[in-house]
């Protein structure tokens, strides 16, 4: 498979996963918790790496999933038990975990095949180099492509199977708990999914730019439609568009691909914010003038 295509495909799969979960995050007003999780999984990744000795393992996903839930729990814990205001609770928790992660990387620099730059903006440019080759010597294509594909399928299945419960707990938590759906359970389920997706996307886009993929496409879609299914679809579309646009921008400028993807996703948001036919500022203005 050609290099450009495999990078764009991987980025698109990752951003579609993130965009889907991002829709839930922003509607639940949990965008910053998503941000916190994406930083906080770092120590989980490093520890899983040290334990299992390799990057591609279920241990890594599990380790990060646990840390992600732990982060969510800790934020709630400080908020409820120590009465720390939510914003400070988020800020204190994730910076602490992220700092531990960075220190662990420095301490085990020889043993861990991760570096600080990779943490920040990933190494999607190297995706085509790490390929799966069968025993017969057939090149099956880049490994990251499979990982991000599987994660997307898992996320799609999760949303498809639990759609009604996720939908209700997002839009009407009071009603959901009245008919016996546990809001806490689905809250943690979504956070678990966010953690897993973050980890899987980590190598390609890094900890901080995952946040851009989680939030920007979903926020952009939110400015166009009031229909939730439509929002999910549009968010995926914007994620994929950002990936394609970002790749070519990065090639043109010879810079970080992940950085460029985030840049494009921000640009798309800006464009839609102004030009969206439903919630755009431009049309709102025209309507206001017409009245």
């Amino acid at each position: 498979m050609n290099n450009d295509l495999s990078i764009i495909l991987t980025a698109s799969l990752v951003s579609a996963s993130c965009a889907l979960l991002g829709c839930f995050l922003i509607l639940r007003k949990m965008a910053m918790v998503g941000d916190a999780i994406s930083h906080a999984v770092l120590p989980g990744i490093v520890i899983a790496f040290l334990v299992s000795g390799s990057r591609d393992s279920v241990t890594m996903l599990l380790g990060a999933g646990i840390i992600g839930m732990f982060t969510t729990f800790l934020i709630e814990f400080f908020h409820k038990k120590a009465r720390l205001q939510t914003d400070a609770s988020i800020g204190v928790t994730f910076t602490w975990l992220f700092a531990i992660g960075v220190v662990l990387i420095s301490l085990f620099a020889g043993k861990v095949d991760l570096d600080q730059d990779c943490v920040l903006y990933g190494e999607i440019a190297y995706v085509p180099l790490d390929v799966i080759i069968t025993q017969g010597g057939i090149n099956l294509g880049p490994k990251a492509l499979y990982v991000s594909g599987i994660i997307l399928i898992v996320n799609l299945l999760f949303i498809f199977l639990a759609y009604r419960k996720l939908f209700l707990t997002t839009f009407d938590p009071a009603f959901a708990s009245a008919i016996g759906i546990s809001t806490a359970l689905w809250h943690y389920a979504i956070m678990g999914a966010v953690s897993m997706t973050t980890v899987a996307s980590f190598e390609s886009v890094g900890a901080i730019l995952v946040v851009a993929l989680l939030i920007a496409p979903a926020a952009t879609a939110y400015l166009i439609t009031d229909n939730f299914k439509m929002m999910l679809a549009l968010a995926c579309l914007f994620g994929v568009l950002s990936s394609i646009g970002g790749y070519y921008l990065a090639v043109w400028l010879d810079g970080s691909i992940a950085g460029a993807i985030a840049t494009i996703s921000g640009l798309l948001f800006g464009l839609v914010m102004i030009l969206s036919p439903t919630h755009g500022l431009f049309f709102k203005k025209i309507k206001a003038v017409a009245h």
């Binding site: 965008a31 910053m32 730019l209 920007a216 926020a219 810079g255 985030a262 840049t263 921000g266 948001f269």
Partner: peptide, 18 residues
């Protein structure tokens, strides 16, 4: 919160690109 997350990550992305 969404606006903060959005601006934070996009600006950071632009910074990393530069």
């Amino acid at each position: 919160d969404t606006a903060i997350g959005l601006i934070l990550s996009v600006f950071f992305g632009i910074g990393i690109l530069m």
